[in-house]
Amino acid sequence: MQEILRLKDIVKCYRLGGQEQVVLDNVNLTICRGDFIAILGPSGAGKSTLMNIIGCLDVPTGGRYILGGRDVAAMTEAQLARVRNREIGFVFQSFQLLPRLNALENVELPLIYAGLPRRRRRELALAVLERVGLQDKVYNYPNQLSGGQQQRVAIARSLVTDPALILADEPTGALDQKTGQQIMALFQELNADGRTVVVITHDAQVAGYARKILRIVDGRLFPGEVDLAGQREHIDVLG
């Protein structure tokens, strides 16, 4: 399968009060086109740091990150912005929609930075909103939408630039269980359409929707079991 990105011996350290703290410890990860990977771990295990590095929001202290054949460490700030815009679609726990923009405008936002003309932006944004089932809510503002609908808008926004990878950080964290299941089902559908999805979560049930689970414990990444039953796994076995 075609490789999208490869993390090689990634190390991330923070200096906290003169003490060096290793957050990511020699992480190796390869993501290929069509993957649906869940990175499962308790809070403080380094999930968010890993997501930030994959999402080019943060740079590793050591190791190499190859994205689409290019070394991320060699990229300028502007090039990184371009990568975030074109290659990666972010979905956040708290949706991160701009309250003053309606659903359509929120979805169009990445396309503005991609420099697309208005008409084309509208076309693409409407198409992805339809894909997530919100074709009749396009002019609603975030506060006129339910949590699940807001997350669908956010997913539409992540899809709109047709990125190589959708990176979701606790996408169900702010939703009730039923809505969360619907959102995860949507990710499954998107994956079935051929999209590459990485979900970062502390919830084994959420991780169960993925085709492949990786566990992160104390900054180290381990392969995990696919939880076919969708039941809660006991992650402390490895901790």
Partner: peptide, 15 residues
């Protein structure tokens, strides 16, 4: 937060 989000969505510093 808005600025952070815009950057995550691909806004360059100059934008």
């Amino acid at each position: 937060t808005e600025i952070g989000l815009r950057k995550a969505l691909g806004a360059e510093p100059v934008q």
